[in-house]
Each structure stands twice: as structure tokens, then as C-alpha cells.
């Protein structure tokens, strides 16, 4: 399979500089759940913020009863970078977590290797949309409970039950402030992605 990005546009692509192959993981979850913290804990640069205009409509995940009229708004998306090697760059995109940002998710999740849904057990509701979204899009994902102050107030089985996630979906506890902890959570996601890719392409 060809994995090197090829200049697909135009004949003017001759350049001395060959950019790295970009891959991405998406970090999703409700507001204040620790997405930016997690990105910042592992990114080799300080998280960057980009703004995008979105229209508050979203197929599939949006509850239109709450948004009878469409409005355009600006959302901020934080992201970080990990240089895997000179030819491979991993981007981590923290995506706004509310239902109405479904459009933003499409924009970012397309082509992602996988997703990590961060959960605050005090506000489980906030992550339903993200879980539904990844399931619906068939993106490999794992759920990570952010242990604020090292404390998780619920039993893992309770959380799994409350979120209604299938047993194939890994559920881990992590600390969004710790590089090591974020790294390991992302490795869980990649393991899901690898297992799935291997199942699809038996050697």
C-alpha cells in the first residue's frame, strides 16, 4: 500500500522538500474534561489553537430540536504534534465535544488513525456524543477516564455500563497531566487500530 503522500494537485509540485507523512489521532470529550491538557502533556510543541467557522448543524449526532435555526460560530481547536521520525508526523487534535460541533468532528476525524474519548466521571453525559460519533463512524477508539487528582469516583464497570460501550472498546483510567499516562492511553487506541488493520489485511 502506498503510504507516502503524493502531490496530487497540479503539475507545479516539484519541490526539493519532501514533507513528512502526516497521521492524526483525535482526542474528544466534553468541555473542561482535559483534552487540551492531554494534548499539551505529550505534544512536543505547545498546543496550537486554530479557529474554524462552523455551522451548527450536524448529521447524525446533532439534536436539532435544540437548534431550530442554523447559526455560524467560531470554535477553537487545540492540537499538538509528535515527530515519530523524520518522515512521519503524528498530529493530535482535541475536538470540541458538544453535539452541535458535529461538523467540526467530520472535518477532523476523517482520516484519523483513531480516537480517544476523555471522560470525567462526574459528567458522564458530556462524552456520549463523542462515543456515539466514533461508533457510528467506525473509527477505532478507546475511552479514558481522566482521574482528576488521582481520583475516580466510579467503578469501571459502572462507567462502562453507563456509557453503554461495548466490551471491545478499551476503558482505561489515566491522568491527562502526565506524559506517560497520555502516551499509554494513546497506545491503547493504536492497538485497537492495529488489531483492526491486521484483521482486515491478514498477512
Amino acid at each position: 500500500m502506498v503510504s507516502v503522500p503524493s502531490p496530487t494537485h497540479g503539475a507545479h509540485s516539484a519541490t526539493a522538500v519532501e514533507p513528512p507523512l502526516p497521521v492524526k489521532l483525535v482526542i474528544a470529550g466534553g468541555f473542561g474534561v482535559g483534552k487540551t491538557t492531554a494534548v499539551g502533556a505529550i505534544s512536543e510543541i505547545r498546543p496550537l489553537t486554530t479557529e474554524a467557522l462552523i455551522t451548527e448543524v450536524a448529521a447524525g449526532v446533532d439534536d436539532l430540536t435544540h437548534t431550530p435555526g442554523k447559526t455560524t460560530t467560531t470554535v477553537a481547536m487545540d492540537f499538538g504534534v509528535i515527530t515519530i521520525d523524520p518522515k512521519l508526523k503524528l498530529y493530535l487534535f482535541g475536538t470540541p465535544g458538544q453535539d452541535r460541533f458535529g461538523f467540526m468532528w467530520d472535518d477532523v476525524v476523517e482520516g484519523a488513525l483513531g480516537g480517544l474519548v476523555i471522560v470525567d466521571t462526574r459528567r458522564l453525559d458530556d462524552c456520549y456524543a463523542a462515543v456515539d460519533y466514533f461508533e457510528h463512524k467506525d473509527v477505532p477508539f478507546a475511552v479514558a477516564i481522566n482521574a482528576f487528582d488521582g481520583e475516580v469516583q466510579h467503578d469501571l464497570d459502572e462507567v462502562r455500563w453507563a456509557l453503554d460501550i461495548s466490551e471491545h472498546v478499551p476503558l482505561v483510567v489515566f491522568d491527562a497531566r502526565e506524559t506517560r499516562s497520555v502516551r499509554d492511553a494513546l497506545l491503547v487506541v493504536l492497538d485497537v487500530a492495529l488489531t483492526r488493520a491486521q484483521a482486515a489485511n491478514p498477512a
Binding site: M1, S3, S13, Q198
Partner: peptide
Amino acid sequence: AVHVPNTGTVHDISVLR
């Protein structure tokens, strides 16, 4: 030069590794 990522990368086992 605009290098649009190859969508097949997601399933590329060697890239994942």
C-alpha cells in the same frame, strides 16, 4: 505544493507500527 494525505494510511499496518 499541497500534499494531500493518502486515505489508505489508516489501514497501513507498517505505518501503524
